[in-house]
Every structure is written in C-alpha cells, then in structure tokens.
Amino acid sequence: MENKNQDPKIVAFVCNWCTYTGADLAGTSRLKYQPNVRMIKLPCTGRIDPVFIIKAFEKGADGVLVSGCHPGDCHYNAGNYHARRRWIMFHKLLDYLGIDESRLHFSWVSASEGKKFVDVVNAFTNKVKAKGPFKKYENINKEFVING
C-alpha cells in the first residue's frame, strides 16, 4: 500500500475471448505497458458482476478497468450487450454516490487490438496516477484498523 502515488493499484476485469487475447497479443508483439494492472480473466463481460468492482475498491484498488469484446463480437452473442446495459446503470450510480468516475474505466478491446490495449492501460494508469490514491475508500477501509 505504500508509495501509492507512484504506484497505483489497478484491477482489470477482462473477457477471455477479446481483451485477454488482445493483451496476449500485446505481449507476443513485445509491446510494453505499465505494470500496475492486475488482470482478472472472466469468460465474458456478462459475467462481470458489479460486486467484483466493489470488492476491488474494498481491497484497495485505486482504479478498475473493465474491458471486453466490441458490440457484435461477443463469443456468446449478447453477453456484452447485457453488460453494457448494467454498466450504464452502475457507473451512474457510482457517480451519484460520489465515487470519482475517472477511477472506473470501460473499454472495448478486441483480440486483434494489442496496441489499443496498451494505449488504454497506459492512459488509464496515468489518469489514476494523477488522481493519487483512492483516499475516500481507504478511509472507510481503515475504520477499526490495528493499532488505532
């Protein structure tokens, strides 16, 4: 948790078929991106339950990246359409509750977009870095913390 300013923690929830493969492509193409992202692979963006995002923030994430197939490309036909509808509601709710919108980033990255994945990660990491640690959530996390 130290040196947060230099080193934000970012959790990425990605879909197995597009973004994860895209990230793979970035790797095999020897493209470099900032190492702050911890990636969690899920079968589909439709599987990304909002509780995952809440849990990520609870456990000290400074930013959450959610990414999957472009509309129309879903391996399961419509998973990302369902997900999109959910995110519309969810990100507006978070905004209303005062969670900085820029800490949650949604994107479509296909399997062939290794370059785009790198750009998205770098841009988002820089944005979160500029924001600094997620102080508000840290405060509620640290209620009753050991040693006071």
Binding site: Y81, R85, R86, F106
Partner: peptide, 16 residues
C-alpha cells in the same frame, strides 16, 4: 425486464 434485455442502440459514450 430492464436488465434482462438489451438494445443494440444503448448508449456507450462512456466506453472507450
């Protein structure tokens, strides 16, 4: 239901 359905034209301004 709202979250049980979708529309191809749903807003996606916030998704990059």
């Amino acid at each position: 239901t709202l979250v049980g359905s979708y529309d191809l034209k749903d807003n996606e301004d916030f998704i990059e």
